[in-house]
Amino acid sequence: MNSIDAADLNYAFLAQELWQYRELALVFATRDLKVRYRQAVIGIAWAVLQPLVMMSLFMVFTRWSGKTPSAHAETYAVSSYIGLLIWQLFSYTVRESTTSLVGHRDLVTKVYFPRLLLPLSTALCALVDFGFAFLVLVPLMWWTGIVPGMAVLLFPIWLLLALLTSIAVGIWLSALNALYRDIGYVVPFLLQIGLFVTPVLYETRSVVPAQWQGLWALNPLVGMIEGCRWSLMPAGSTDGPSVVIVVLSLCSLVALLVSGLWYFRRAEQWIADRI
């Protein structure tokens, strides 16, 4: 027999339930994708166009100013495109997660399912967008003359870590937004700041002074984006993360994820009464 009491925070049971309801996450994600692209004329191309346009703009500006925020000007296009891909994955997940509980008030107050599925399914959606945008990276690398080395095998791990970062921030904000209305106003602003403190348009070790890099790396995306670049681009064409950056980013990610899960679990208990 399963049971639940007033102060239950059973994580094994949560994992079991998430597995049991795994199809619902897929259903939520496909629903969101369908709804999003059904009435949009250019459909999935939108996911590709956004980072491509951004990258082209950066290229133009760096050309005009004559300075590249990276020690490797010749591979800047690829490096910034990778940064944009991960940033898009992160910002989409965070933005959609934030409203995921509040936006599904009807469901949350009427039906039970593990509430964690709502923010998780937004990450799945973001991953689909990422997949399409990633397809463009291949010709882009070929055109720039970049051939990845063996490190490319580690790319899925970096991507997974970046996804976990997005999820960790996403579940924090989704629970907070369900309880505090003003979170919704803060998130766009936070994302704007995030674009600057994250090496999307620049490479960390080329731009951030050495004594600040440790602080910078507390933003887990710093380690993840540099890691993605390192695994996709051959040595010498990108800075790559230092060991310190990787370790700090990982620690920060674990802290975010664990605290996020804990807070979400707690909030889950009264979310249906307060939302």
Partner: peptide, 9 residues
């Protein structure tokens, strides 16, 4: 959908 304040189900 919601948790009891006290007790167990």
């Amino acid at each position: 959908i919601t948790r009891p304040t006290q007790g167990r189900i």
